[in-house]
Amino acid sequence: MLSADQCYKVFQQSIDDYHVHDNVDAPIKNPFPDGSFEALLYHKNWIDTVQWHLEDIIRKPDINPYDGIEIKRRIDRSNQDRTDTVEKVDDHFLEHFRNVKPKPGARMNSETPAWLLDRMSILMLKIYHMKEQTERKDASPDHIARCTQKLSVLLEQKNDMRAAYDELLEDVLNGNRKFKVYRQMKMYNDTSLNPMLYNQKKNGQ
């Protein structure tokens, strides 16, 4: 299983590759072998990176309302894709630890390794874009100073999350901690659970 630093490296590669074209419609060109853990992490971060920029676009004050609705729906689809991908990452962890028997009294971790990686992936995006802000030539010295301070905090958080991830995997492997995977039960995209959708279908609209 990859260490935190190795995961960060995959996330960084995805972010760098995206910004070669910096276009939300650019096709993903995953450099890792199909079915590998690295390929899954790269795909996960690519989803996050595209969605980051969609969130920027939808906040344009002069955006065409029809374009805004389409982007909002695209973000909804992206959120579902992100959740599905995180659960696939957790499948890897379940397989990796399937022969590990937790010790009596092993503590339950409230977060699965994959959802911790989800936060680490997004953190790498925050670091990338906050660093961009510190390098702006058109920004005021106060803006640069504030962003430099924020970047310092983000880098500290990166170190903390590195330790948290590596320690979690070590503790699970040693049987000192355990986790459960609760599949996400999102309701708004499900035509059988969202009343706005199933009522429309029932009324034949």
Rank of each mutant, 00 (worst) to 15 (best):
V100D: 07
A39K: 00
N189W: 01
V86D: 07
S3Y: 01
K131E: 09
K186T: 15
D34A: 13
P27R: 09
S110Y: 05
D5L: 07
L151A: 02
H19E: 10
L155M: 13
K201L: 15
I47L: 15
W46E: 04
E156G: 09
F93Y: 14
R59C: 04
M130I: 11
T112E: 01
D84R: 15
G175S: 03
D138P: 07
Y42S: 03
V10N: 04
P33E: 12
Q133Y: 08
D56M: 05
I47T: 07
H92P: 01
M196R: 09
K186C: 04
A4E: 08
E95N: 14
L94T: 10
F11T: 03
H129Q: 10
I58W: 03
Y165I: 09
I15A: 08
H92Y: 14
P33S: 06
R107M: 14
P195A: 07
L125K: 11
K180V: 11
K88V: 11
R77L: 06
E156A: 09
A39E: 11
M196K: 14
L117P: 01
G68R: 14
Y8T: 02
Y18C: 09
M124T: 05
E167M: 07
R183Q: 14
D34I: 13
Y8K: 02
L41K: 08
Y18S: 06
R177V: 10
Q51W: 05
V181Q: 12
M196H: 12
L40V: 00
L151E: 02
H43S: 10
L151R: 06
S152I: 03
